[in-house]
Each structure stands twice: as C-alpha cells, then as structure tokens.
Nucleic acid binder design. Structure first.
Lengths: 199, 199
DNA sequence: TGTACATCAGTGAACGCGCGTTCACTGATGTAC
DNA sequence: TGTACATCAGTGAACGCGCGTTCACTGATGTAC
C-alpha cells in the first residue's frame, strides 16, 4: 500500500487544490459564493469538471476548506500585527484601522470574500466565517483598555464595514479610513465617568 | 384606447405583483436573492413562469421594486418612530435599540432581506439598499447629540449587525439587545473632553 | 534488476434536470359607433 | 342597446443551455517479490 505519494505528485495535487481555492475567491467576487458552480470553478482552475471531485465532494466542502486554510491564517496574522501595534504607544484607533487595511491589502480577494460571505447565502461557509471572526474579536478584547467583549465586537463590526466601503469602489479608501478612525476614537475614548475613576 | 382598466382588474394585477414580491422575500431567506430564479418565484406566487414577464422584465427589476415599494416605507417608518422616541427624555441608546427591534418585528422577512442583501451578490439590489440605508443614517444624524454623519453611520452599522444576530437564531434576541445597547451607550456617551466643554 | 500488480489524479461522453425565454393562443374587459 | 374591434394578463408547449453527477478509461507512479 501507498503510505506517501512522492515529490512532484503531491506538489501537483496541492497546486491544483490551491488553484481551485483561488479561482473560487476570484469568481465569488462576481456572483457570490452561493451562485458559484463546480463547473465554473473548475474552468477557472483549468481542470475538467469531473476532476473537481478528486479534491472536494461539493462546493460546500470547498468553502469550508477555504475558510480553514486561507481565511484563518489571514485573521491570525491580522490579529497578531494588531496586537503588536497596540503594545506600542500609538493611538489604539489608529493602530486598529491601519492594521485592518494592511491585512486587506495583503490579500484583497480573500478579504473581499470574508466581507461578502460573512453575510452570504451559503450557510456552511457563513457559519465557518462567523466562527473565525468571533475568535478574532475574542482575541482583540483583552488588548483593549475596556476588555468587554461587546466593545471588541463593535470594533470588529465597524472595521469590517469600513473595509467593505473601501473595497467596494476603487480608490475612495482614505474617506473610509478617516471615518472609521473617528468612529473608533469615539468608541474607545474613556467616557467622563471612567475618566474620573482613573485619574 | 384604454386609459384605466377598472376595479377588480387592477386589483388582481396588484395582488399578483405583491405576491411575487412577498414570495421573493420568503425564498431569498433560503438561497439569497441572487440565487433566486424567475421560475422559483413564480411558483411561490402561484402563477405560470411566463406570467412573470407581465410584471417584471427580470429579477433585477423585481429587486429594485422590492426596495422602492417595501423597504423604503419600512425604513421611513423606522426613522420616524426613532425620531419620536429620541424627542422624549429617554436614553438615546435605549430608544435606538428598541425602535430597531420594533421595526424588525413589524416585518421580519423584509428586515431579513435588508440585512442579507445589503451585502448580497446582486449589485442592483445591493446598490438600491445601500442608498436607502444611507438616507436613513443621514436622517438620524441631526437627531443625535453629536450630529456628525460618522457617528450616525456607526449607530446604523451596529444596529444592523445586532439585528442580524438576533434574526439568525430563533430566540437569542435579548443577548443581542443587551450587547448593542452597551455598545451604543458607549459610543454616544460624551467623552471626557466634550463633557468638559459642556458643563 | 525486472516484472506483475495496485493506486489514483485527470478525463470525455453521456445522463437527466431546471433554467430563462419565445411564441401563439385564450378569454375577459374596455372602446367605438 | 347591440355589434365589431382592441387591449392585455395569464397560459402551455417548446427551445437551447449549463448544471451536477456517473461511468469507464488513461497513464503515471509506487509496491511486492
């Protein structure tokens, strides 16, 4: 029996698998993940439709793989960079916004996918994404002055909305940045009563 | 030439048109508006597929009619009730949340549609919704202590996210209410420096 | 080393199905005179 | 009032198309001995 197929064989398999995932990202930007078919994705990855089954049982399985293998690393990276930034003396709102846009720029298609499918029509994919995003938020909370999970959730929600606006049209990113920075500054500012308690 | 068809004829036409719109709302909750076909909607409205064309040229046109004729009134109503509530002496955060959930309860399917298709895959529908929501936010801004459009936008974003969570699963609405109320209280609280300026 | 066999990713042909759309028809209703 | 004609919402049959899925086949690669 074959325990491990060898060098180029495995490498080629991984190449095609990744091609399927990346093709899905690209095509989902147009019709949405739920409106995507196995034949369309296979065409995008330049394989025969029937070859799709050598990698995934159906589109739902592919969607979950996409979240596990591409989205999760992006989010972990994003959280890590944000954590580093917050540890510096810089303004929290500024760091949060800067790192959110940096993460989006690292992989625009992937971030677009996250933003769209977080509320998308494919339940399995949406559930997986919301789980990952909840984890991000839970990771952010203890890094904030007010570690309440509600505030971290609000920060994430506002950041994602801002990224949506910025990625929607080509170049209006600066307006979205200024806006969300103002929102987060306000949200994270110590309100009067808290300011009194901590002189 | 016929200038006006008479009583029951027009009434029946309107009945079917509304049935198409309502069927779309119901079905879009399952597969998303973009994944919906003219045949499926016609089946839902109990007419022959070919009769669809007597009312709309295609699904995109139906989507826009849905926003203009059902969503817009809901949003206007919601804004009006919110305005009345804010004029009373009650806490702004509490009024905002209460009226958001009241609007959702007035027409759950319609609110679900707004939440899902605001980020959905059908561009024409998404654009129409974002326009209406931008109008809602613009209407809210002058009613807040801080009339900056950025703050009103943040309020709307957080309310919509909260409604999404509440409508996602059956009964966990109270948790979502408590959460967004905390978020808005924080967002709308006068920060230390503003409190100093206005004694 | 050579030979026989097992595994498995990729493939083309073929299937049945639901889709959007066209078309000619129906029957009820309104208009002209 | 009656008669001939126009309008128009709803319909069933039919079309071509792309879809998901099945199947048997290929060829390259790994394993046994």
């Amino acid at each position: 029996m074959v325990l491990r197929a060898k060098p180029e064989k495995v490498e080629e398999r991984e190449r095609i698998r990744l091609a399927l995932l990346r093709a899905t990202l690209l095509l989902a930007a147009r019709h949405g993940f739920a409106g995507l078919g196995l034949r369309e994705v296979s065409r995008g990855a330049e394989i025969a439709p029937t070859s799709f089954y050598r990698h995934f049982a159906d589109m739902a399985e592919l969607g979950i793989a996409l979240v596990d293998e591409l989205v999760a690393p992006l989010l972990h990276d994003w959280l890590e960079q944000t954590s580093l930034g917050l540890a510096s003396a810089r303004l929290p709102a500024q760091v949060l916004v800067e790192q959110a846009f940096a993460a989006a720029q690292r992989d625009r298609d992937l971030m677009r996918f996250v933003l769209a499918e977080r509320g998308g029509a494919m339940p399995s994919c949406r559930a997986a994404l919301r789980r990952e995003l909840a984890e991000w938020s839970a990771g952010l909370a203890p890094l904030l002055d007010d570690p309440s999970p509600h505030i971290a959730d609000a920060v994430l929600t506002l950041l994602l909305e801002s990224l949506s606006e910025a990625l929607e049209d080509g170049g209006g990113a600066q307006a979205a940045i200024d806006k969300v920075e103002a929102q987060l500054t306000r949200l994270l500012a110590a309100p009067a009563e808290r300011a009194r308690k901590k002189p």
